[in-house]
């Protein structure tokens, strides 16, 4: 396992959007049990450093693969697709929908029962994310990377919206 080993190889998993998160979590724990710096507390300095590097890499790989959005992004990067290119136009209909959702979020504060309204809103965003996850699964299976990239971008919009909704929740509580 060198530093260039890809995140799937770290856990000996096939490169795929569909992964068994149970197995992933299990292998994550097993590998951390082996290389976590705590297992090297008594070891020479060099080995402690090495253990920290490995444990860091394993954490990074696990965090990336655990969530559908970061997993999708990573798969696209493995395909050599530049996921940081922000000069890509989004489809108009989607942007309209996002604007409406944002307006709706902004109006929640004024509602009679804002926390309940927010909870309904959060549920809807989560459904959108679930739907995108299903679509991504199909598109990655068909190697339709361009369409997958579009949906990953949409996913990013929903994640940001979700974060904003949670910030509002923090304000309201």
């Amino acid at each position: 396992m060198s530093l260039s080993t890809n995140h799937f190889e770290v856990f000996d998993l096939p490169i795929s959007f569909d992964i068994d998160t149970e197995i992933l979590a299990q292998r994550y724990r097993d590998s951390q049990r082996t290389v976590h710096p705590d297992k090297y507390a008594n070891a020479p300095e060099r080995d402690r450093r090495l253990a920290m590097q490995k444990a860091t890499q394993i954490n990074e790989a696990f965090q990336t693969l655990k969530k559908p959005l970061t997993r999708g992004l990573y798969l696209l990067q493995l395909q050599g697709i530049d996921t940081n290119d922000s000069n890509v136009a989004m489809d108009g209909e989607f942007l309209m929908e996002q604007m409406e959702l944002r307006e709706e979020l902004a109006s929640i504060k004024q509602q009679a029962n804002p926390l309940d309204a927010l909870s309904v809103f959060l549920n809807r965003i989560e459904q959108h994310q679930q739907h995108l996850t299903n679509t991504l699964s199909q598109q990655f299976a068909q190697k339709a990377y361009q369409s997958a990239h579009d949906n990953v971008r949409k996913f990013q919009f929903f994640i940001r919206l979700h974060e904003e909704a949670l910030r509002l929740e923090e304000e309201l509580i």
Partner: peptide, 28 residues
């Protein structure tokens, strides 16, 4: 000593990780 055993230490850790994952595959 650290320098000449660097790659050996790497191999040992990798082998340990590999071993740990294999071990659990039997469990699975």
């Amino acid at each position: 000593l650290d320098e000449i055993t660097q790659s050996y230490a790497q191999r040992r850790m990798d082998s340990a990780i590999h071993h740990a994952m294999k071990g659990h595959r039997v469990d699975d």
